[in-house]
Simulated scan of single mutants.
Amino acid sequence: MDRIETQASGGCQCGAVRYHVTAVLDTSHICHCRMCQKAAGNFFAALIGVPRDAITWTRGEPATFASSDKAARGFCRACGTPLLYDYAESKHINLTTGSFDEPARFAPKVQFGLEGRLPCFADLPLKAEGTTEETMAAYVGAIKATNHQHPDHDTDRWPA
């Protein structure tokens, strides 16, 4: 695993938990295992390794759930956003890629947990059908006007 020096921030949906990293590992991946599916509440979890000495919690800290005797899952206790997978014996933790402010910087390179992969993801056959604004046109104005989501950048305090 190569260490890649970088500067990146992220956090939960409500902004109660924020972090900054100064390095990542070249391990960006998705995991299809059943435990990751349940932890993410989704078909898979997208994760990237971060050396323990390269992460600073800049606002709050994640709550954790011991998903096994060897690993814990971290999340925001206020909004529930999944934030990390921590295998206690590892020299790194895995942050959820989607919790980064710029998740596109860390595209997955490999898939794990294939025993849990749903058949529809063997070859993703879905067509793209438009932006949120296009598919949710009747609701976008009301959602934007009452948005409680933290912006994708660090703030001095939140809520504003």
Score class of each variant (00 low, 15 high):
G74P: 00
G74R: 01
G74V: 00
F75P: 00
C76E: 00
C76N: 00
C76D: 00
R77L: 06
R77M: 06
A78L: 10
A78Y: 10
C79G: 01
T81W: 04
T81K: 08
P82G: 03
P82A: 00
P82K: 01
L83M: 04
L83C: 03
L83Y: 02
L83P: 05
L84M: 07
Y85Q: 06
D86N: 05
D86R: 03
Y87N: 11
Y87K: 10
Y87H: 15
A88G: 05
A88C: 03
S90Q: 06
K91A: 12
K91C: 12
H92W: 02
I93D: 01
I93L: 02
N94S: 11
N94K: 12
N94Q: 11
L95C: 06
T96M: 07
T97Y: 01
T97G: 01
T97I: 04
T97P: 02
S99K: 01
F100C: 10
F100T: 14
D101C: 04
D101F: 02
D101P: 05
D101M: 02
E102A: 09
P103F: 00
A104V: 09
A104G: 11
F106N: 09
F106W: 09
A107K: 07
A107G: 08
P108M: 07
P108Y: 05
P108H: 09
K109A: 08
K109M: 07
V110D: 12
V110T: 12
V110G: 08
Q111A: 11
Q111P: 06
Q111I: 11
F112W: 11
F112D: 09
G113Y: 06
G113F: 04
L114F: 12
E115T: 14
E115P: 15
G116D: 04
R117Y: 07
R117P: 03
L118R: 13
L118V: 10
P119G: 07
P119E: 08
P119H: 06
P119S: 07
C120Q: 14
C120T: 15
F121H: 13
F121L: 08
A122P: 10
D123K: 13
D123F: 08
D123V: 05
D123Y: 11
D123Q: 13
L124T: 15
L124C: 14
P125N: 13
L126S: 12
L126P: 11
K127D: 14
K127V: 14
A128G: 13
A128Y: 15
E129Y: 08
E129W: 05
E129P: 08
E129C: 08
E129I: 09
G130E: 04
T132I: 14
T132L: 14
T132V: 15
E133K: 07
E134K: 09
T135C: 14
M136Q: 15
A137Y: 03
A137W: 02
A137L: 03
A137C: 06
A138L: 03
Y139S: 08
Y139L: 09
Y139C: 10
G141R: 13
G141L: 13
A142V: 13
I143R: 03
K144S: 02
K144R: 06
A145L: 01
A145V: 02
A145K: 01
A145R: 01
T146W: 09
T146A: 11
N147I: 00
N147K: 00
N147W: 02
N147L: 01
Q149V: 13
Q149P: 12
H150V: 04
P151L: 08
P151S: 09
P151F: 06
D152H: 14
